[in-house]
């Protein structure tokens, strides 16, 4: 059984959001599936011109589904983050994404944390300046330490970089002290960037900016 990882990010001394990892995220619920294998067409056949017009119109409709403004694409297999506007690439950055490893929770036998970056489409939901990491339980357990009772002992300022951009369920794009690990799958689910790329992403991405992760 998997259960959420908790970590917190604080900006300006106020707890703004909780962060959880583990469960895979996928936008959209199931829809009716359909496959066609040479289904007979009982309708009156449309003219070729009408079909061509319909095809061109659908092509335009599909193009209209793409974001009007800036969007972010994250390739977790190759650890690359790209910021685009229409077909223009505004930034290509080397990132670090989820390690895919698991950690048993000793306090709840049979449960474990899975450190994956979620796949799917999300949106930027928060833009924090000078975020403070509130260490979750797993961070202590991983280091062989006891989970503190005093919340103040969880605070770790300075390690997330200048900015953190939340994209839901507590996952963030943030900075890192471990720049030599960029390009590798080493995180607990968040997306790490170097300082310069993080500044650029923070400048370009607003609340509501789509983040597509695959």
């Amino acid at each position: 059984m998997l259960f959420p990882v908790l970590c917190l990010v604080i900006a300006g001394g106020t707890v703004l959001t909780a962060c959880q990892g583990g469960a895979p995220l996928e936008g959209g619920g199931p829809t009716a599936t359909e496959n066609r294998q040479e289904q007979p067409n009982r309708k009156q056949p449309a003219s070729l011109d009408a079909l061509r017009t319909r095809y061109a119109s659908l092509k335009r409709q599909l193009a209209q589904q793409s974001p009007d403004n800036t969007y972010i694409v994250v390739d977790t297999a190759r650890n690359v983050l790209v910021v685009k506007r229409k077909s223009n690439v505004l930034l290509t950055a080397i990132a670090s994404t989820g390690s895919g490893t698991i950690l048993d929770n000793p306090d709840r036998p049979g449960t474990q944390w899975v450190f994956d970056t979620p796949r799917g489409e999300f949106t930027i939901q928060s833009r924090l300046t000078n975020p403070v990491w509130v260490k979750p339980d797993w961070a202590f357990l991983e280091e062989g330490q006891k989970v503190p009772k005093d919340p103040a002992e969880r605070l770790e300022p300075g390690i997330l970089g200048e900015y953190a951009l939340g994209f839901g369920k507590g996952y963030f794009i943030h900075g890192t002290l471990y720049t030599r690990l960029l390009g590798k799958n080493v995180t607990h689910g968040c997306i790490r960037l170097n300082d310069q790329d993080l500044r650029t992403v923070h400048r370009l991405a607003m609340i509501g900016t789509p983040v597509m992760i695959f």
């Binding site: 895919g100 490893t101 698991i102 048993d104 357990l141 991983e142 280091e143 062989g144």
Partner: peptide, 14 residues
């Protein structure tokens, strides 16, 4: 998936 084992020694992170 590799499984992390909690470190016995806090000075030696996994």
């Amino acid at each position: 998936r590799p499984k992390a084992e909690p470190s016995k020694d806090p000075s030696l992170p996994t």
